Simulated assay, not measured.
Amino acid sequence: MPDTDPRAHDALEITAPHRELLDQVLDKWSLEVLAVLCERPSRFNELRRAIPAVTQKSLTATLRRLERNGIVEREVVTTRPVAVEYRITPLGKSMRGPVDVLLDWIGEHTPEIERARDRFDDAEE
């Protein structure tokens, strides 16, 4: 049966803006932060406790990148003492579906990928 999907024959074009955004929102710490914020808004220290391996400097940089790209928003909470709370934006929530698809693909193909890595590593020895 012929392939009727018009996108099937289109070349995949990844431009510099694509690469920049993917680097900024799908890196190790961004995915961890998004996983936490998808559940509920959190303060900085709550995020640090939820992601114990992240340094303060890396978490700050990650939150700033996500905020700059409209994925996370920062809100000053007028409590005593004043606090900052981070929450995922509607744009950030819209990433959930594509990220879940990618994670599902990884889960489905991990054994095959591990076999390929083993073959490659064996050939390198």
Score class of each variant (00 low, 15 high):
residue 41 P to H: 02
residue 52 P to G: 00
residue 31 L to G: 06
residue 52 P to S: 01
residue 57 K to N: 14
residue 54 V to D: 03
residue 59 L to T: 03
residue 48 R to Y: 07
residue 47 L to F: 07
residue 36 V to H: 07
residue 44 F to V: 06
residue 43 R to Q: 11
residue 36 V to G: 04
residue 59 L to D: 00
residue 55 T to F: 04
residue 51 I to S: 02
residue 47 L to S: 02
residue 42 S to E: 07
residue 46 E to C: 00
residue 31 L to A: 05
residue 41 P to Y: 03
residue 37 L to H: 02
residue 58 S to K: 13
residue 43 R to A: 12
residue 43 R to E: 13
residue 45 N to D: 13
residue 58 S to D: 15
residue 60 T to G: 08
residue 59 L to Q: 01
residue 33 V to L: 02
residue 40 R to K: 12
residue 56 Q to G: 09
residue 44 F to M: 05
residue 47 L to E: 03
residue 48 R to N: 04
residue 51 I to T: 05
residue 31 L to P: 06
residue 33 V to E: 00
residue 54 V to I: 15
residue 42 S to M: 11
residue 54 V to T: 15
residue 46 E to S: 00
residue 43 R to S: 11
residue 37 L to A: 00
residue 40 R to M: 11
residue 38 C to M: 12
residue 58 S to N: 15
residue 54 V to L: 12
residue 53 A to E: 13
residue 50 A to C: 05
residue 58 S to A: 15
residue 49 R to L: 12
residue 38 C to R: 11
residue 61 A to H: 10
residue 38 C to K: 10
residue 49 R to D: 15
residue 60 T to E: 14
residue 54 V to F: 09
residue 49 R to C: 10
residue 38 C to L: 12
residue 33 V to K: 00
residue 43 R to W: 10
residue 40 R to Y: 08
residue 36 V to Q: 15
residue 36 V to F: 08
residue 37 L to F: 03
residue 38 C to Y: 10
residue 35 A to M: 09
residue 35 A to G: 10
residue 46 E to T: 03
residue 55 T to K: 01
residue 31 L to Y: 06
residue 31 L to T: 08
residue 35 A to E: 14
residue 53 A to Y: 09
residue 41 P to Q: 04
residue 50 A to M: 07
residue 57 K to L: 13
residue 39 E to W: 08
residue 36 V to Y: 07
residue 59 L to V: 06
residue 50 A to V: 11
residue 41 P to F: 03
residue 61 A to R: 13
residue 50 A to Y: 07
residue 34 L to W: 05
residue 60 T to Q: 14
residue 59 L to N: 01
residue 43 R to Y: 14
residue 54 V to Y: 08
residue 37 L to E: 01
residue 59 L to R: 01
residue 59 L to G: 00
residue 42 S to T: 07
residue 53 A to L: 11
residue 37 L to P: 03
residue 58 S to I: 10
residue 45 N to S: 12
residue 33 V to M: 01
residue 39 E to S: 11
residue 42 S to N: 07
residue 51 I to R: 03
residue 56 Q to S: 15
residue 39 E to A: 10
residue 47 L to H: 04
residue 38 C to Q: 12
residue 46 E to L: 01
residue 44 F to S: 02
residue 35 A to T: 13
residue 45 N to G: 08
residue 34 L to E: 03
residue 33 V to H: 00
residue 53 A to Q: 13
residue 34 L to S: 03
residue 51 I to A: 02
residue 55 T to G: 04
residue 35 A to K: 14
residue 36 V to S: 08
residue 59 L to E: 00
residue 56 Q to F: 14
residue 32 E to W: 07
residue 52 P to T: 04
residue 49 R to N: 11
residue 45 N to K: 09
residue 49 R to E: 15
residue 35 A to Y: 09
residue 31 L to E: 05
residue 34 L to G: 02
residue 60 T to V: 13
residue 59 L to P: 01
residue 32 E to Q: 12
residue 35 A to V: 08
residue 57 K to V: 15
residue 58 S to C: 12
residue 39 E to M: 10
residue 45 N to M: 11
residue 44 F to L: 06
residue 59 L to I: 07
residue 47 L to D: 02
residue 59 L to F: 05
residue 53 A to D: 14
residue 52 P to D: 00
residue 42 S to H: 07
residue 38 C to P: 06
residue 42 S to F: 05
residue 58 S to R: 15
residue 44 F to A: 01
residue 33 V to N: 00
residue 41 P to D: 04
residue 31 L to N: 05
residue 39 E to H: 10
residue 34 L to F: 06
residue 33 V to Y: 00
residue 49 R to P: 06
residue 34 L to N: 03
